[in-house]
Design a protein around this nucleic acid. Structure first.
Lengths: 342, 342
DNA sequence: CTGAAAGCGCTTACAG
DNA sequence: CTGAAAGCGCTTACAG
């Protein structure tokens, strides 16, 4: 069982013996604790360097902090999550914390198993990105470990912090933009979820979409289509929407990733964007800027969301218990895919 | 310090007391160890369920296995890495192992810090995806923990396993395809790295490209351009290549992700693909299939790479010490971006 | 400033 | 089949 690997491990005891000091002294040097003379510190540091000693995180975890935070991601395929991780990394850069990511593949069962696994492991705190679990499960998690949620609307929560985009407003911006560019038959391509809850960003965007359509006197045109995550399901839904006799004038997609598939299907069907159909995404990921996509989208700055979440989490780890709920205001970025028809 | 959270934790001792058995007995039930009567097992399981007990991974890690494997990823932005993770997840699905991902952001310093952090933590093994570290660092890592590398060519290594695409062959396939479709002035857009080593996939693809050009009597046309990871650097390089008087007839990009940027720049410059310039990527990620990209690429099945790596790692964790080096044969997938000119 | 000792929550020989 | 005890490698009061 690879037992040779564990032979003559160098532990804190080895270092203490080598430096001729107590184990406690080494521990203090390691943690930069106060109350060690410069001379002792120097001796210990020399021994550590000579022996190439590294403290075992597992042992530390049994008593103190582990300097690790866990991030639960639904899906690394969606480029928006990369933006969030960039923000998390920025916030952690000058700190002692490392992040470790668990990927739930958008499955609720995996998500729950992963959260359990992460709380069992030595982690100082957790960032859950767009989790699907219900309030009760989030509560259990937050009781076990400091927790911050991104993309999960629960503004009244007291046990954990949340960081969100104003998703209702984002959807409203899209509807208003499409109306302003001359469309009224606007469909929303949303995400199909087994047990949807209002906390989800897609639920919020649906609400915002409905409200804005109503405000513009377009309630009769409200059309919400929900498709699963996969490319196959997304394309099938897009094909159905674009082929039907009453093809909408615009399709608003819940995330850029889906909008790219819609652009592809439109092209395959010989439709031109934005002439035959306007397409709008959400998240303003880097793909929107590519000339072949030229996709109008809503910017909610994943970088900011990730950065704030990490910042709030560290505060919680350090002892803050009053809840904070951070909300960013979305901004519409208009590009060619929704240009007014000529 | 959130001390209220740690109050009245339910530990193995709590369970033992509740079930009226010894701590050792609970441990055995937990690990499905032999030598426990059905009756004792049932009593313990009832207590575990009633108390909602969960074993602490940190404590376990001090003695036994942790059932966690770490995956070191350079960059979650590149969609190819999603394919690899899909494969890893498939392999782990029916096992007791969980994967936790560390993201190095393509920086060597972060990569080294992350590997250290992961080996300090309780992990049973490590999968390093396209690491940049040199052989000595990989060796140190492999001595500390079972290790498998993906996308890192070191076929003679004995301390760890490797899983690779035949990258030289892949590059040759591309050159031959472009020659067959009537191009001879073929440039290679590669990745700029501070201290490149031969083990890198980009180095291997450069070698394959050179060899294939030579074989086709095109050595005079060899042109390797290297650009950094960022979108800005990639686009700048593409712009330089496409604007120059001697614009190549084809640009072979080291990864799809880069090819998408080249397609964008070409379109912005008013060039048509594949008439004015052919573009080929590598990895055959899902973006290639979108009609607006229609990108020729080389399939190396990230799913297979991830699956095999996880499989090999589990074997190593279970005790195998003889090295294995798995190589997949790449396959060219021709699409519109390299169609013969009419 | 320094160190001996208890203890974190498990697993693993070892006895019974 | 079952359990008492040692020990994994650290940190943290507590004494000195």
């Amino acid at each position: 069982m690879a037992s040779s690997r564990t032979t003559d491990r160098t532990t804190i005891r080895t270092v203490a013996a080598d430096a001729g000091v107590s184990v406690a002294a080494v521990s203090k040097v390691l943690r930069n604790a106060y109350g060690v003379s410069d001379e002792l510190r120097a001796r210990v540091e020399t021994s550590i360097a000579r022996l190439g000693y590294r403290p075992r995180a597992a042992a530390r975890a049994m008593r103190g902090q582990t300097d690790t935070i866990g991030v639960l991601l639904a899906d690394i395929r969606n480029p928006f999550f990369s933006d969030i991780m960039d923000g998390v990394h920025s916030a952690l850069e000058r700190t002692k914390y490392q992040s470790l990511v668990g990927i739930s593949q958008s499955a609720l069962s995996i998500e729950l198993a992963l959260v359990d696994a992460m709380t069992d492991r030595p982690m100082d705190g957790l960032i859950l990105v767009a989790p699907r679990m219900v309030a009760a499960d989030v509560t259990v998690t937050a009781l076990r470990s400091p927790t911050v949620l991104i993309g999960h609307h629960e503004p009244q929560a007291t046990l954990f912090d949340t960081v969100n985009d104003n998703d209702r407003l984002g959807a409203q911006l899209v509807v208003e933009h499409l109306v302003a560019t001359g469309r009224s038959d606007i469909a929303f391509l949303s995400l199909e979820i087994d047990d949807p809850i209002n906390a989800l960003v897609t639920s919020q965007r649906e609400i915002g979409y409905r409200a804005a359509m109503a405000e513009n006197g377009l309630s009769a045109h409200v059309d919400i289509v929900r498709a699963g995550q996969s490319s196959r399901e997304t394309q099938a839904a897009a094909r159905r929407m674009l082929k039907s006799g009453e093809r909408p004038e615009a399709i608003f997609c819940w995330t850029d990733f889906v909008a790219l598939e819609v652009l592809s299907v439109a092209r395959e069907l010989g439709l031109s964007v934005p002439e035959d159909v306007a397409v709008v995404g959400y998240d303003n990921t880097s793909y929107c800027d590519l000339a072949q996509n030229d996709l109008t989208s809503v910017d909610q700055s994943g970088h900011t969301l990730g950065l704030q979440a990490a910042r709030l989490l560290i505060e919680r780890i350090k002892g803050r218990i009053s809840p904070e709920h951070f909300v960013v205001t979305p901004r519409l970025v208009a590009r060619g895919s929704s240009r007014p028809r000529t």
